[in-house]
Design a protein around this nucleic acid. Sequence first.
DNA 1: AAGCGTAGTAATCAATTGATTACTCACTCC
DNA 2: GGAGTGAGTAATCAATTGATTACTACGCTT
Lengths: 204, 204
Amino acid sequence: MSTTEGRLTSDDRREQILAAATVVFGDKGYAGGTTDAIARQAGISQAYVVRMFGSKENLFLEVARRATGRLRVAFRDVIAGFTGDETNLERQVALGRAYGELVADRGILLSLLHLFGLGQDPVFGPEARECFLDVYRIVRDEAGFSATEASEFFARGMLNTILLAMGMPERRDDPRAFELMSTSMGAECETILASVEAQASLRA
Amino acid sequence: MSTTEGRLTSDDRREQILAAATVVFGDKGYAGGTTDAIARQAGISQAYVVRMFGSKENLFLEVARRATGRLRVAFRDVIAGFTGDETNLERQVALGRAYGELVADRGILLSLLHLFGLGQDPVFGPEARECFLDVYRIVRDEAGFSATEASEFFARGMLNTILLAMGMPERRDDPRAFELMSTSMGAECETILASVEAQASLRA
DNA sequence: AAGCGTAGTAATCAATTGATTACTCACTCC
DNA sequence: GGAGTGAGTAATCAATTGATTACTACGCTT
């Protein structure tokens, strides 16, 4: 996939590399994801990956920023559609659905999770905290959630992300695993599981 | 620290290496945590770390298993103290406190978080899922929580763990950051923040 | 057709890192 | 007092990996 195309414009290639890096970093984490694996996934040489972004560190930073950017856009889109007479629960469900749709883009949420795990790092730590607070401010201020509602929303989101990162859908036969997933993901559960399965099937 | 001691028994040294590895893996993740960093933290040679556990992979597995072991013991201890006439909320708070106390052992929760991020790995993935489900079964079956209660409990736990991993306490001056932490961590908040601060201050 | 900028690579480097091997040192038990 | 055993290390290896450099190929403009 993703290959057999000839030369691309710099911008197109850049986007392609970012997409590939999002997948690889999502699976293996920052240290575990090699520039070579990213290059192979994008169908180009390792040297070009490094040259286009200057360094692996820089590439990961852009991946993370692009991921939070997607999150912010998705949330703001939903919030813009609020009429003002929804219940809080309805608003939580609407935002949750937007979150669930991001799962379709494999790696976005997982790369963010890995970023969050690097809070001790002098470069990634501050970035992680700022990214997270950025999104929190949107949900808290722009969506008009209370502190409790926002905290519950993020808590559920984190659990869902981790279940996904763990590959828990692979164990949907286990009654406890299935129960946990359907309880935590709610109405989105089937959509998410289908999305994950689609991604898994088209992997080598 | 941790050094200036002479030769230890194999078992003592083993525990010491596991403790060091828990800290290092917690900070840097599996791929990012080197056996050399672990050896330095434990005050011994890198060769000995590898020889004692056979491989880095094996060492990380033992770190993860020890971590979930601690979790299980902590939860079961609390559950054993249940009289049967607590409210569900009281039980959630009691389990939450046990969870909060594990924060004092730097790295335990963070290493687990990194394990969960490796769900795609053929070795760590199955281990991660089993570890998680193991703990879930305890909370669900032994503590007598409903699916909803258990899911809420784990959701909050995951958010707290991620806030911790991110180093969010460093931003407690930010009103939004402080609000999120105190809302999510509840009564434990001050205990946890103090514990984190203590650990930060005794770091180089 | 000559020149030039842009996309992209092959080859290579230096550093890191997990692992292995052969060795030393201290203790203990005949 | 020497043989054996367990704790621990120094030296070294082979593989990986991020980065650099010099190069090629293609398309566009004049």
